[in-house]
Computed example of a mutant assay.
Amino acid sequence: MELRKLRVFVEVVRQGGFSAAAETLFATQSTVSKSVRQLEDEIGMPLLNRIGHRITMTEAGEVVFRRAQQLLADREDLIAELDDIRGLRRGTLRLGLPPIGSSVLFAPVFTLYRKRYPGIDVSLVEHGGDRLDELLQAGEIDLAGSLLPIPEQEYDWQTVRCEPLVALLARGHPLKDAGPVTLKDLKDVPFILFESGFALNRIIIEACRAQGFEPQIVARSSQLDFVVELAAAGLGVAFLPRMIADERRRAAVDYVPLKGHETDWNLAVTWRRNGYLSKSAQAWLACLREIHQDV
């Protein structure tokens, strides 16, 4: 059983279809379909139910998916461990960071790391926290920027920054002088959120439900500046960590503090608790601690 075929199958499940998986794998759809079909022939059972353009896993598919994720993660651990034998003169650090806050918090760490370890190649991917969690679980990245809380039995972490959220409202909104507001105070205002896969969305929506309402979501975007401009245009209310909001001040936007700690933006760098943490990853964490002395 080839790991390459398992990798293709895992990506088809993750992406929810063959065409999306083909884009992620930089392969043709026919190549992806053929690889999954060969895997099914080798196992002797169907792994996927194909219903139109939608797929679901069979019982066998669920077993293979779970085991394949672990096998792929073990392979990456093996490669990382062998790189460590060579020392930090060369190797790769696979890093996953969220788009929100990375430029401020991690750019200085990059600079220090590059200066000390010029032979280490840093492979960077940027996604929302939920997608980074998938990549971390599969062993495709060594470290991920994640919002706490996270499952303690699965991850270890190093805290980076904790910031309260602020609500972004168009200039002159009636709530602008209300002082700190709760999410419930904003329940009649349409919400502008980030794209699905951003952990900040989940924190906001869960906090709304805890306060007894379901938010009306009027727009989603992965572009931070566009989210701010939508709020400035009066489309609804957006939310940013205070530190990020201060960087993106707009004359057309009022910034209202959000009351309560249940929505705090608590950013950490995480890694798999039972995975192998390479020396290159350990060196990155040391640089992170040095830059952010209050961690």
Rank of each mutant, 00 (worst) to 15 (best):
residue 14 R to V: 02
residue 38 Q to D: 15
residue 91 G to S: 01
residue 50 R to S: 04
residue 59 E to P: 11
residue 67 R to K: 11
residue 27 A to I: 00
residue 31 T to F: 03
residue 43 I to T: 06
residue 69 Q to R: 09
residue 70 Q to G: 10
residue 63 V to C: 13
residue 61 G to S: 05
residue 49 N to W: 12
residue 37 R to F: 00
residue 68 A to D: 03
residue 75 R to T: 01
residue 98 P to Y: 15
residue 18 F to I: 11
residue 95 L to S: 01
residue 43 I to E: 02
residue 109 V to F: 00
residue 102 S to I: 07
residue 109 V to P: 08
residue 35 S to Y: 05
residue 78 L to G: 10
residue 53 H to F: 12
residue 81 E to C: 12
residue 48 L to V: 13
residue 83 D to G: 13
residue 20 A to K: 11
residue 44 G to M: 00
residue 95 L to C: 04
residue 87 G to E: 02
residue 67 R to A: 14
residue 88 L to D: 00
residue 59 E to M: 15
residue 52 G to I: 03
residue 110 F to Y: 09
residue 17 G to S: 07
residue 43 I to S: 04
residue 58 T to P: 13
residue 61 G to M: 12
residue 75 R to G: 00
residue 48 L to Q: 04
residue 109 V to R: 02
residue 100 I to V: 13
residue 23 E to Y: 05
residue 110 F to V: 03
residue 75 R to N: 02
residue 91 G to N: 01
residue 98 P to M: 15
residue 79 I to T: 10
residue 48 L to K: 15
residue 66 R to W: 12
residue 77 D to M: 03
residue 61 G to V: 09
residue 87 G to H: 04
residue 80 A to T: 00
residue 103 S to D: 13
residue 15 Q to G: 04
residue 14 R to Y: 05
residue 106 F to S: 03
residue 47 L to A: 01
residue 30 S to L: 07
residue 91 G to Q: 00
residue 76 E to Y: 05
residue 18 F to S: 12
residue 39 L to P: 00
residue 62 E to L: 08
residue 106 F to P: 11
residue 42 E to D: 04
residue 107 A to S: 09
residue 80 A to H: 01
residue 82 L to M: 13
residue 106 F to N: 12
residue 15 Q to P: 06
residue 19 S to L: 09
residue 100 I to Q: 15
residue 64 V to A: 08
residue 70 Q to I: 12
residue 62 E to C: 12
residue 85 I to Y: 09
residue 31 T to G: 06
residue 108 P to I: 00
residue 87 G to I: 02
residue 20 A to V: 03
residue 20 A to F: 07
residue 99 P to S: 15
residue 68 A to M: 06
residue 93 L to S: 00
residue 73 A to Y: 01
residue 33 S to D: 10
residue 82 L to V: 09
residue 42 E to R: 10
residue 74 D to M: 05
residue 14 R to K: 11
residue 91 G to A: 01
residue 86 R to A: 13
residue 107 A to M: 14
residue 81 E to R: 14
residue 54 R to N: 08
residue 89 R to G: 10
residue 64 V to N: 00
residue 101 G to C: 10
residue 63 V to A: 14
residue 84 D to F: 14
residue 36 V to S: 04
residue 79 I to W: 08
residue 107 A to Y: 12
residue 51 I to H: 12
residue 36 V to L: 07
residue 110 F to K: 01
residue 93 L to V: 00
residue 24 T to W: 05
residue 24 T to K: 11
residue 64 V to L: 07
residue 26 F to W: 07
residue 79 I to E: 01
residue 23 E to T: 09
residue 104 V to H: 15
